[in-house]
Structures are given as C-alpha cells and as structure tokens.
C-alpha cells in the first residue's frame, strides 16, 4: 500500500479488496484497554513511554473496555478477579482480541504449584489470541506480540463469521 499514491498521482483512485483495506485500517490502530494487574503492568507502562514507544504503531491506551479493541491481561489473575475479567471481556465489542502478557496469565507463572488463589492461566475464563512469554517480558517482546497480532488480523475475513472456539492462538 505504501507507494501506490505516487503511482496514480493524477487520478486518486486505488483499487484494493475490501477485506484488505478494512484489515489494514484495523490492525494499524489497535486501541488497548489498560488492564495492568501486577508487575507486567509496569513493563506495559514502560512500553507506552518514550523509549519503546507504542504510539508509533497506532496503539494508544483507553480506560474503558467499550472503547478498546484489544485487552492486554498483564499480570497474575486471581480467583477473586476471574469473574471480573469475564465481565470486562463481555463488555468489549467485536472484533476483540486478547493478549496474555507474562507467565502468570499464560499458565500461572511462578505460582503454578502451591498458589491456591491463583488462576492457572487466563485462558480458563476467556479465549486468548496471542501469548507473550516472560517474567516480565521485555518491552520488545510485547511489541513483537502486537506484530504477531497484526499478522493474525491481516489474515481475517469478514465474510464468514468465525466461531470463537476455532481461533488458534499464536505464541510470540
């Protein structure tokens, strides 16, 4: 899409498939819901700060789930919090995505063995699209998670409505 406007400079008509145009628009402005729970939230804030800038990819934080496209579950999910996460996920409007950031929300993390109050992975309550490993993951790892999500969005189609259970998660 980059240099097309230079080729057709006297007639401003570009012909492209509807799905590609929609997917291109959607993947370059993913607004995430600020859902930092624990240590990974600090790395999420650091990714949004000046050095590892999120904004250059079009990613900005929104406080409310109703205005967000993607939910980054950053940190340990506990039993007390699990029902709230489900409710927040249901409040997001489709198309919606979930990135599970850090070991704790992938699989329980360092608390997998004796943690009685820790949910062993947020995918027990909501479907996850991208898993970003690390404890905590570096900001570059989170950015790669977003790039993987963008790849996934490029391949999506609006014609056939996919079943939520068919979604296959990718690991960054």
């Amino acid at each position: 899409m980059g240099m097309l406007d230079k080729k057709y400079h006297d007639s401003n008509i570009i012909i492209v498939g509807l799905e590609s145009a929609l997917n291109w628009a959607r993947k370059n402005s993913l607004w995430y819901e600020q859902f930092g729970l624990a240590c990974c939230a600090i790395e999420m804030m650091a990714t949004a700060a000046s050095r590892y800038d999120f904004d250059r990819f079009g990613i900005i934080p929104r406080s409310s789930p109703r205005q967000a496209d993607v939910m980054i579950v950053a940190g340990t999910v506990t039993m007390k919090m699990a029902s709230r996460i489900e409710r927040l996920y249901e409040q997001m409007s489709e198309p919606r995505y979930v990135i599970s950031m850090g070991s704790c929300s992938n699989c329980g993390g360092p608390y997998w063995e004796h943690g009685y109050h820790v949910l062993k992975g947020v995918d027990k309550v909501i479907p996850v699209d991208v898993y970003v490993p690390g404890c905590p993951p570096r900001p570059e790892a989170l950015l790669e998670g977003f790039l993987k999500l963008q790849e996934k969005i490029t391949g999506e189609t609006i014609i056939v409505k996919k079943n939520e259970a068919d979604k296959k998660p990718e690991t960054a």
């Binding site: 506990t78 007390k80 004796h114 943690g115 109050h117």
Partner: peptide, 10 residues
C-alpha cells in the same frame, strides 16, 4: 485481595 498471590504459603 484481588492480587493475593499466596507469598506466605509459598
């Protein structure tokens, strides 16, 4: 208690 991660039990 929304982030109680059982440190003392561990």
């Amino acid at each position: 208690g929304y982030l109680h991660r059982c440190f003392e039990k561990y």
